[in-house]
Amino acid sequence: MRPEYSLILLTVLAGAGQGVFVFLATGDMSGFSKGSRVPPMTTITGLGVALALTLAGMAASFFHLTHKARGIKAINKWRFSWLSREVVLLPIFVGGMVVYGLLYFIGAHPVIIQATGLAGIVVVLALFISTAMIYGHLSFIREWGTAYTPVNFTLTGLISGWVFGAAVYQMALAPVGATLFNLRLFFVLAIVGLVVKLLYYRRNCGLYSPTTIQTALGINHPKIRLMETGSAYPTYNTEEYHYTALKEKRGILKGVSIIALYLVPMAAMAWDYMAILSGGLAILAPVAAISAMAGAFVERWVFFVEGNHAQNHYYGNFPAKIRPNPILQSGKKDAPLPPGV
């Protein structure tokens, strides 16, 4: 699919914003349980970062729409459309962050704050899933239509937000207890995220598609070749659903994103973790944040361009490497395939 840069910005930036929020909420919870709470100003600063990231993502997504004034209508179908759900949940999340920050500001009872934080985490998870399922439920785009998509969107958002949160904690010299707890959580997230990503990439290498040129045309013949697209110039069908830029380099880009999104932040955070324990200088979180952001952008770009829409069969643009399922194929003689030539 053609990468829609506004959507890449939205999913990466708002995802990181959501991750920062979860970082701050869990950080304060762990500090609270250990009796050494994070100073309110630190959390409020962090919320400012989360808000800035989320609003920047929302602003970018706004450019995706051609009729911005009608944007409010996008909440109409929240019962059916994941996109609509995302549009509903985004302002709830932003509003929730503002409320959460205000509670700190007025010095509300810690229990109220923690309860709000917990509710916020639920909203964040719902928002991650809504954003990802916009793509994840398009089952005939085989690269997208998988449970890996929501898991990956959630983990990528949490990881990239986590390093931003860690940078804020570092600069504000947050208490060691909360910082260490969150750093340990980071390694869990990063390792699970990396494993999920590798499994996801591996899955996409040997992908099966039940849709073939035969089912697309309803002609049961092994040799079908496109002769004419019916148009001398590119059309919406050939431009929107098919993207060939950097086709040979996508493997390298995947490697770059894995290094920048997982390995570099893990190394930086490991350094910081050891530094905190040994009383040294923990200063690498901002490096991790920049690296993770870059990695997340590359990752999302690859995600978009790797999607192969079923309609590409009609234009000879469906990659041959996505084979029909051999198990289904072996039963071909008995299966009620459409009659053809």
């Binding site: 002609i219 013949h221 079908i224 002769m227 004419e228 019916g230 919406y236 030539v341």
Partner: peptide, 14 residues
């Protein structure tokens, strides 16, 4: 390029 509602492709079968 432009908007068309009905496009016709041609295929060689066999």
């Amino acid at each position: 390029t432009g908007v068309w509602f009905n496009r016709i492709q041609t295929y060689e079968v066999g």
